[in-house]
């Protein structure tokens, strides 16, 4: 691990201003992904700003009947929150499907959104990677691609976003609240928060340098039967090969978002019109334009079957 200086931020705006002023500054909250990457020298910050004192861990009702989740709310606390369990069960389910009890006790809401891909070539510093070194090339393309993206990938990157929580947030139309280095605040719809890789896979989100997430807001609950169906190589504590988040209403209409298939949670609102006609019709629209390899083409079949399972057996 490279050496770094360490300080604790007193206000969100102060943290954002400090981070924008120089390169090599990183915020740290739960640290479960950042420290892992620092040990491998994939992340090499020279200055760490700890957000732990910012009191951004509250989960509060909003005036319009939604929920405002502080950026530092722990994954365990968010999953266990009574309002989330009752009104946004797909979010509880997605959180509980991710990581381990120990990691969920540290991992935060904002950190979960900002976690990096688990592409094995991104993690292997001996191999070229456009995320680590823009322009170096992508070792995954032509490599071992079983876990990689089948949608929205580019010639520069075929990595997936690993989060389960973000898939549920996308399904629920969450909004990310931030503070910028000049102290101004803004909101970013979750659909626009994560980027597709394009030619700049090292730029993963819509955040500007120094911009700090302060909260994620959920609109008022929309009901329906909600489920998160995650398919992985072992029964627990593994990343998704494919995951399917669903909300299904009594008339068969609903919403669906996929995880494990793209550089961001994958949702195509137009495809949701096909939901009353079943999983096959829906996934045909949802997976339109998929580009697969011999190793990851199974994800398309798996997505259809996982959606079928979720439609047949939603759990509240």
């Amino acid at each position: 691990m490279r050496a770094f200086t360490y300080e604790r931020a007193r206000t969100p705006a102060e943290a954002a201003a400090a981070a924008a002023g120089e390169p090599g500054v990183r915020f740290i909250a739960g640290g479960t992904n950042l420290l892992d990457l620092m040990k491998l020298e994939i992340e090499t910050p020279r200055r760490l700003i700890d957000l732990g004192d910012l009191k951004l861990d509250e989960i509060k009702a909003t005036r319009d009947g939604g929920l405002r989740i502080g950026a530092l709310a722990r994954n365990t606390d968010l999953a266990a929150d009574k309002r989330v369990r009752k009104d946004y069960p797909v979010l509880s389910r997605a959180l509980l499907a991710g990581a381990s009890g120990q990691l969920r006790n540290k991992a935060t809401t904002a950190g979960n959104l900002l976690q990096r891909t688990r592409c094995p070539y991104f993690y292997d510093t001996n191999m070229p990677c456009n995320k680590r070194s823009p322009g170096a090339g992508c070792s995954a393309i032509g490599g071992f691609t079983r876990s990689h993206a089948v949608l929205g990938s580019s010639e520069a990157c075929i990595a997936t976003h690993p989060s389960d929580m973000a898939v549920a947030m996308r399904l629920l139309d969450a909004v990310v609240e931030t503070v910028r280095p000049d102290g101004a605040t803004r909101t970013i719809p979750i659909a626009e928060f994560h980027r597709l890789p394009g030619e700049t896979p090292h730029i993963e989100t819509a955040l500007a340098p120094g911009e700090l997430i302060t909260a994620v807001t959920l609109p008022k609950p929309i009901g329906g039967r909600q489920a998160y169906h995650k398919v992985r190589d072992r029964a627990s504590y593994a990343f998704a090969l494919v995951s399917v988040a669903t909300i299904i209403h009594e008339d068969g209409s609903g919403r669906v978002a996929l995880g494990g298939v793209a550089h961001k949670p994958w949702r195509v609102e137009e495809a949701e019109a096909a939901m009353p006609r079943g999983a096959k019709a829906t996934t045909e629209a949802l997976l339109s334009g998929a580009r697969t390899t011999a190793q990851n083409a199974f994800k398309l079949t798996l997505a259809e079957r996982a959606l079928g399972a979720a439609m047949a057996q939603p759990r509240g």
Partner: peptide, 19 residues
């Protein structure tokens, strides 16, 4: 490396002492 910090189990390897 699991230890209990402020009543919660965490991985002691993925957190800094100074935190």
């Amino acid at each position: 490396c699991t230890v209990i910090v402020e009543g919660r189990r965490i991985n002691a390897c993925l957190t800094l002492a100074v935190m």
